[in-house]
C-alpha cells in the first residue's frame, strides 16, 4: 500500500520531460489545443510510454491508438516534433530536454485528440484489388504455389507494409489532394502486380493509371524516408510509372484485337 506513493515520489524527484499533446474534443474545441504534461524521462521510455503515463496517471480522457508496442501493428503513428513517427519506436530521450510535441498524423481528419479517421485510407487500400487474382485459373484448394527465391524477392519488400500511414502523413501531394491514391496503396498494388502467382495487373492498371493514381506523384520521396519498414513506396510508384507508360505505349501502338 505504501510502496506506490513512494515510487511516485522517486519518479518525480528524477528527471522529467514535457509532453505537449494536441487535444481536440469535437463540439468543445474549434481546433486542436496543445496541453502540457510532465512525464518521467527514462532512457527506456518511448513517446507511447509517455502517453500511457499521461492516460494512466495524469489525464484519463486522452484518446490515442496503440496496440503492440513493438512496431508491427501500425496503430501508434503520430506526428512527433513535426515528423511522422511510430510512437512506440520513438524514445523520449531523443528530444531531451523537451518539450516533445505530439500531434495527430498530418493529412488526415482528426476525430479526437490523437485519433485520426482511417476510413479513406482503408478505402484506398481496398481499391487496388489487394489479393491474388487468378482469372478463372483457380487451382484446387490443396494445390501449392511454389515460388523461387527470385520470384519471392520481386515483391517481398512491398509486402512488409504495416499500414501505419506514416507515408501518407509525409506526402505533401496527399495533404493537398485527398483523392490521391497515395504511397501505401500503390506499393500494395505493386506487391501483387510483381507476384508471379497473380493475374490482376490489368485490372489494377485502370486504378493506378487513372486520375488520382501514379501520375499525380512528383517523387518528393518523403514517404520512403518516413516508412519504418523499408518498403520504399516512392520507388514502387516510380517503377510502376515506367510499367504503366510502357503499357500505355503498347496499347497505343497495338490494334485493339491484338492486345
Amino acid at each position: 500500500m505504501s510502496a506506490e506513493p513512494a515510487m511516485r515520489a522517486a519518479e518525480t524527484a528524477g528527471e522529467s520531460i514535457v509532453l505537449r499533446v494536441s487535444r481536440y474534443l469535437p463540439g468543445r474545441d474549434a481546433e486542436p489545443v496543445p496541453r502540457d504534461y510532465e512525464v518521467p524521462l527514462r532512457e527506456e521510455w518511448s513517446v507511447l510510454d509517455g502517453l500511457n503515463h499521461v492516460k494512466d496517471v495524469l489525464d484519463g480522457s486522452l484518446a490515442y491508438r496503440w496496440s503492440c508496442r513493438m512496431g508491427i501493428c501500425g496503430s501508434c503513428g503520430m506526428t512527433v516534433n513535426g515528423e511522422p513517427r511510430l510512437t512506440c519506436g520513438t524514445f523520449l530521450s531523443e528530444f531531451a530536454p523537451g518539450p516533445v510535441v505530439v500531434e495527430p498524423l498530418r493529412g488526415f481528419a482528426v476525430i479526437r485528440d490523437l485519433v485520426v479517421d482511417i476510413e479513406p485510407f482503408l478505402g484506398k487500400l481496398a481499391s487496388v484489388t489487394p489479393w491474388l487474382v487468378r482469372n478463372g485459373a483457380e487451382p484446387p484448394p490443396d494445390a501449392e504455389f511454389a515460388q523461387t527465391p527470385e520470384q519471392l524477392g520481386a515483391y517481398k519488400q512491398f509486402s512488409m507494409c504495416i499500414n501505419c500511414m506514416l507515408c501518407y502523413s509525409a506526402c505533401p501531394v496527399y495533404a493537398l489532394d485527398e483523392d490521391f491514391l497515395g504511397p501505401a496503396a500503390i506499393a500494395l498494388a505493386q506487391r501483387y502486380n510483381l507476384d508471379s502467382r497473380d493475374m490482376g495487373a490489368a485490372a489494377r492498371f485502370d486504378v493506378l493509371a487513372a486520375a488520382g493514381g501514379v501520375w499525380d506523384c512528383t517523387y518528393v520521396g518523403e514517404c520512403s524516408a518516413a516508412c519504418p519498414k523499408g518498403v520504399d513506396p516512392a520507388g514502387a510508384i516510380q517503377q510502376y510509372k515506367l510499367t504503366a507508360a510502357m503499357e500505355t505505349v503498347r496499347r497505343f501502338l497495338l490494334p485493339k484485337g491484338a492486345r
Binding site: T148, E150, Q151, G153, A154, Y219, G221, S224, D232, A234, G235, Q238, Q239, K241, L242
Partner: peptide, 15 residues
C-alpha cells in the same frame, strides 16, 4: 540519386 530507386533493373530475376 533517384534513378536507381525509380527503375528496377533485374538481371536473371535479381534486382
Amino acid at each position: 540519386v533517384v534513378t536507381p530507386k525509380a527503375v528496377a533493373v533485374r538481371v536473371l530475376g535479381v534486382r
